[in-house]
């Protein structure tokens, strides 16, 4: 069977696999608070509090045992992802009922925004 290349928007699974947690990722609870919780009251500006960048760019291509390597790396990151997912879910749930979200300490109208 000849291999055909399909453009990137044809498979929803392939799209989801990429867009949900790859690329530039912003903390989920912040995502909610940016648009949700303080919809009108907060006009304070956002600041970038921390940046964590790592590029997979230089990862060597197909070292001697790619399958082994991927298993070792990916199993761990899978668990880490699951843990992160759980904690994000609980944060989201907390955000939804208004508790536990580190919202804004000070609410002031901004000047010059």
């Amino acid at each position: 069977m000849p291999v055909e290349r399909t453009s990137s928007n044809t498979s929803l699974i392939d799209v989801l696999d990429r867009v949900l947690d790859k690329g530039i990722v912003i903390d989920a609870w912040v995502r909610v608070s940016l648009v949700g919780i303080d919809l009108i009251t907060v006009e304070a500006r956002i600041v970038v509090a921390s940046i964590e960048t790592y590029l997979k760019y230089s990862e060597a291509v197909a070292q001697s045992t790619p399958a082994l390597r991927s298993n070792a790396v990916e199993t761990r990151s899978q668990e880490a992802l699951a843990a992160e997912n759980r904690s994000l879910r609980s944060k989201l749930a907390a955000a939804a009922d208004g508790t536990g979200v580190p919202v804004v300490r000070r609410r002031r109208r901004s000047v010059g925004v």
């Binding site: 069977m1 291999v3 055909e4 290349r5 399909t6 453009s7 990137s8 044809t10 498979s11 392939d14 990429r18 867009v19 790859k22 690329g23 530039i24 990722v25 912003i26 903390d27 912040v30 608070s33 940016l34 907060v42 006009e43 304070a44 500006r45 956002i46 600041v47 970038v48 509090a49 921390s50 940046i51 964590e52 960048t53 790592y54 590029l55 997979k56 760019y57 804004v104 300490r105 000070r106 002031r108 109208r109 901004s110 000047v111």
Partner: peptide, 30 residues
């Protein structure tokens, strides 16, 4: 020929860029 290949793209480099940002509200907007 016994394997099935699913070949997709071009994509933006999702798998090769990972930038995690934590944003906050400015503590003091004034």
């Amino acid at each position: 020929h016994k394997l099935t290949f699913k070949y997709t793209g071009p994509w933006p480099p999702y798998n090769f860029v990972n930038i995690r940002l934590k944003l906050e509200r400015a503590k003091d907007a004034q």
